[in-house]
Amino acid sequence: MSTTVPKKITLRTADNHEFEVDEAVAMELGTVKTFFDENPDATDEPIPLPNVSSKCLSTIIEYCKFHLSLRARGNDSSSAEEEGKVYDEELIKTHDNESLVELILAVNYLNIKDMLDTLNQGVADRIKNKSVEYVRRFFGIENDYTPEEEAEIRAQYEWAFEGVDPDDD
């Protein structure tokens, strides 16, 4: 463990909030890491993240900090893994669909693979065994098919349609 003060990196969100984080945390953000890899002489100026809101970034930073600390523990990996799982489940639980999608867009832009995997699994779990109408309503997605077009596509899948849960909202 180094005794020197860790280098800080400042990130600036779309809504103009600045977050000062340890270099190790910033390097969890693939997009930021790539920037520093390609610009080793970059100055200490804030890194603008035009596609990320401060709300999302604070969630993302918390996530990265927590998972970094878990990895640092290393030796008791089974309990760390369990804690990580609980944290991830809680993260999904505390986000409704709209904010989950917003967070995914930010995480995708920042290229944080593990976090994206977790969030995508969260969305997949919410879609599983649901009817088309339910998914549309749940995610506020507009149906851009005409009834005829939809019936046509549905007919193409006659061979597979069975055992879908009825709506439960």
């Binding site: 065994n129 998914v135 997605i141 596509i153 899948y157």
Partner: peptide, 19 residues
């Protein structure tokens, strides 16, 4: 990526949501 985490029926349903 999300759809690769779905079973067959759910994948087909998701494919009907919008274009």
């Amino acid at each position: 990526h999300i759809f690769c985490l779905l079973d067959l029926q759910s994948l087909i349903s998701a494919g009907l949501v919008c274009r």
